[in-house]
Design a protein around this nucleic acid. Structure first.
Lengths: 345, 345
DNA sequence: CTGTTAGCGCGTTCAC
DNA sequence: GTGAACGCGCTAACAG
């Protein structure tokens, strides 16, 4: 009754490639392959004694489950695809880190794609990542090409749009309203008595929306004039310096509102090098997470948004979905933001 | 001769899940499945006319190749696993970004694992990532558990250890010598005339090695006394401030050497808030990439290491390996570093 | 609780 | 140039 051995190279082959399979483990443990699978994935369905034999065989062989095969068979890849503009901006980095941490405790892994703020790159990446059959997909923003939206919808998996909010999310949205940030900041600063404003923003869609909303609210409050400097993304300290430099050539604002903390830090540096005192000669307001910048410049006001919080809540929302395996209706989570004002402290 | 239709849910099912397969495309195009596969992966083997029919069918069906299946069949996953301590440190972020960029042009995707500087987490992650059968694995540093080294070796794929150099890499090493950084900085500063040093470092293995090497070289030059402050990782501005604060309680160095630019920026801030002038009252030396910090503080000297360069060269080295499919002997690439001195500028 | 059967969707290998 | 079988390594579904 000897079974004919497989023809291809098995076991530890000459090139050092060990392709130990479930079958090898099963043979060594003296059980059926299916039992090994169960012992590894659903130990509660297996007798303790069997379990031990299997684990011993796993260790002895150095078996590492092939998740390509497992994913194919079960149509659950335990992979989450994440699409972000960039990772070299600390604010997104915090989100990814938190998201990965949250997912990894449930044995999900993360496939990252970098779009560089380009919708066409996003479109290509969505297709490429979908090829891995992820169990969910997370992407920054709510502004996608129609092809992207179409593919996302048809993928039939949870889709989370983060870092923004929208009336009609593809599936879920977790973030905050950039319009509201702009409006609230404007109201706050006007109430504090500021009248001469300047805005410095990088050319990033959400940053621009915050700034536009800010200007619109100012206009509503009767302040029509608001100098605006735009710089190419990504935000850098140098950009902040240059922005202030250019602005001071034609106006003298009391306060500069920046689209990000990095820019704000650059502004602070330029102000310092001109001997301007912050916030008396010039106040500065940033935007971002407190982790790096703002907690330290005693004079820098800022809008705090929880980059890590977004990641954490995204992970939680996904794990919940995975558990009940039922696609409920649209979900929106407003992670909010808060205005940190250094002068009132 | 009607073929019995498959039993499982196919086509666009009720739940919105479209599982279009190669077979569906083939049927629509009126060719064999194999021809579709070729048309997509090796178009040069297919007649132009056939090619067109296939592409039309692909578009019409919205087919997205299942790379789990493809990877399983071909044992080439087009996946590269990357293990890093963290991504929320801009220096690693640049490396990842460059690495991903380099790999993505060749249609490789990136699976990231975050170790948080823990060797045991690295060990667990290596096992988990290896389960995806990546075509290569990249990991930070050269200090791994023996289990990790063993698994890596047996995986039979290219392994790149980055951000460090070693006599005997597992496979390839791409980075620079942290000992040499410490030594060169010490020589440089002594030659410039500094005698009273202070070192502030976060508790990160490579950072500590740089600082230890720095102190050792100082000792060799006859400077045995060198105050040393260590802070918990990760590096923050706050850490830099606190480090300087603590140090100034018991000593008055002429120059502070920091394990990273972030720390150095914190030191600069603390110095500024004490009214100390940099570099006259206190010189500061950082370490990292020029992208963010150093290019802007006119008074901050630093060691420039190419974080992005490491990523780029890693991608290049891997793509080369993939092409010749032959595992050659060990490879070491020294990406070097350079000391940027603000005073001599 | 454990084993058996039958694919998952694709690429390799050979015929044609 | 194109097609037909076969199996990659695993798990769902059912039988025992």
């Amino acid at each position: 009754m000897a079974r004919k051995p497989k023809s291809r190279s098995q076991g530890t082959s000459a090139d050092g490639t060990s392709s130990v399979t479930l079958i090898d483990v099963a043979r060594m443990a003296g059980v059926a392959p299916m039992t090994v699978s169960r012992a590894l994935n659903r130990p509660e369905l297996v007798r303790e004694e069997t379990q031990k034999k299997v684990l011993a065989a796993v260790r002895a062989t150095g078996y590492v489950p092939n998740m390509l095969a497992g994913g194919l068979a079960s149509s659950r890849s335990r992979l989450v695809a994440v699409l972000l503009p960039t990772i070299a901006s600390s604010i997104f980095a915090e989100t990814v880190q938190a998201l990965m941490d949250g997912l990894s405790v449930a044995n999900y892994q993360t496939l990252i794609g970098l779009t560089g703020y380009s919708a066409s790159r996003e479109e290509a990446l969505v297709e490429a990542l979908l090829g891995r059959r992820p169990d969910a997909i997370v992407l920054a923003g709510t502004d996608h090409t129609s092809t992207t939206v179409d593919r996302l919808t048809r993928a039939g998996i949870p889709v989370v749009e983060i870092w923004d909010l929208t009336e009609k999310p593809i599936d879920m949205a977790i973030g905050f309203s950039h319009e509201q940030v702009g409006r609230d900041v404007a109201r706050h600063l006007v109430k504090k008595g500021y009248r001469r404003f300047g805005v410095i923003s990088v050319n990033d869609p959400r940053g621009l929306r915050r700034c536009e909303s800010f200007k619109a609210e100012l206009a509503r409050q009767g302040i029509g004039d608001c100098p605006f400097e735009t710089l190419p993304a990504p935000a850098t300290l140098e950009g902040g310096r240059r922005g202030l430099w250019r602005m001071l050539e034609y106006t003298r604002p009391d306060i500069i509102v920046c689209s990000s903390d990095t820019l704000a830090e650059g502004v602070l540096m330029e102000a310092a090098s001109r001997g301007m005192h912050v916030p008396d000669d010039l106040a500065v307001m940033g935007f971002g997470d407190l982790t790096m910048a703002a907690q330290l410049h005693p004079a820098l006001s800022t809008v705090k948004v929880g980059g890590a919080d977004i990641g954490k809540r995204t992970a939680a929302a996904l794990l919940e979905r995975f558990q009940m395996a039922a696609a409920r209706g649209p979900v929106c989570i407003d992670t909010g933001f808060s205005i940190i004002d250094r002068e009132s402290a």
